[in-house]
Design a protein around this nucleic acid. Structure first.
Lengths: 182, 182
DNA sequence: CGCCCCATGTAAGCAGTTACATGATTAC
DNA sequence: GTAATCATGTAACTGCTTACATGGGGCG
């Protein structure tokens, strides 16, 4: 239900179209929130009818017209209010963990395969984060206020992916022992 | 959409009632999946009509009657099949990160407060995990097959909460610098 | 006397995904 | 020619939450 506030936060940085938001969901904000384009369009409409966003139609030649949304004063004060409200722990939902939990039902090879497939996805994400870090956040001491907060969210991504890999290593060790026990 | 398989995994270990499942969602399986009681009751009905679970009515005196579900052969083979299917990275949804991302809008004190509140919740969860580890998984080398997989899911919880705390420390450092810069 | 625990369920609604629809331009 | 990018939307559906309903037993 924080989807509206995620959009509000993104638009507060820079006026944007729904389409642009949809792509950035695979960039900065997408690292800790996600939504489909369809959902974004619906939420944008609702945010506007709440008075937190306003849009301007921008005509383009050789491209379809677009709606550029920007945040209103009411939108900013709503965002500020919401930031100060205590955040609940996000509900955990990780299908891989269910698979591990019931892992005793299948051969170790099956689990190894599933774990390896997942590992490569996690590793790819970590590498993507690290590339962003080295490219855009080289000089951590010279970041402006906005950038330094963006950097913190990136750091969370890096720390979490590394933790995931550490867990995967532990898990692999145990699976190897299971093979040799058999 | 893995809720059905989470329930299947839990019932495969031990025949249970919906009510019991609802409580255990704040135990082992609840560490990586969650659902409300209402949802569980609905899913149990659907799982039964799919032929993956079957229930027996158990009459109790001085307590309401209950339905004890157990997994069927079809249910077990479905679980095995599902475990071998590649698991997607779970969609990230963390409201606190949105708050940090838009943190430049509010005073550092507000962020510190929100971070501290969150930290105490995370710490409580970590301590809960560690208590379970020291109580039930003291002798890691003597775990049976089922237990060792349960242990792995617990380890993930511990590693992740520790990672979260490490990130929170980094974040606090940066927030302190922000106060002194002002 | 009121509240919590046990135990199950229905109904309404919100949040989110998938499918369908349109249409021009650019790239291979 | 066919796929991808830009750009917005509607409609149907699934997944999940919240509110409401029932009812006995134990506890303070």
């Amino acid at each position: 239900m924080s989807t509206k506030h995620a959009i509000l936060a993104a638009v507060s940085r820079k006026p944007q179209t729904g389409y642009e938001l949809g792509k950035k969901i695979e960039g900065s904000i997408g690292f800790f929130w996600n939504a489909t384009l369809q959902q974004i369009y619906r939420e944008l409409g609702e945010l506007e009818s709440m008075g937190w966003l306003r849009h301007k139609d921008v005509k383009q030649n050789e491209k379809p017209d677009k709606k550029v949304y920007r945040i209103t004063r009411a939108g900013i004060s709503e965002l500020k209010r919401w930031i100060g409200v205590e955040a609940e722990l996000p509900p955990a939902k990780d299908a891989l963990l269910i698979k591990i939990f019931a892992g005793h039902l299948v051969p170790t090879e099956t689990l190894m395969k599933v774990l390896e497939q997942h590992r490569s996805k996690r590793l790819a994400r970590l590498e993507q984060y690290i590339e962003i870090e080295t490219r855009y956040f080289k000089n951590v001491n010279r970041l402006d206020d906005e950038e330094s907060f963006q950097y913190l969210t990136l750091r969370r991504g890096i720390i979490f992916e590394r933790a995931w890999l550490a867990w995967a290593d532990e898990t692999k060790e145990l699976l190897k022992k299971r093979i040799s026990r058999k």
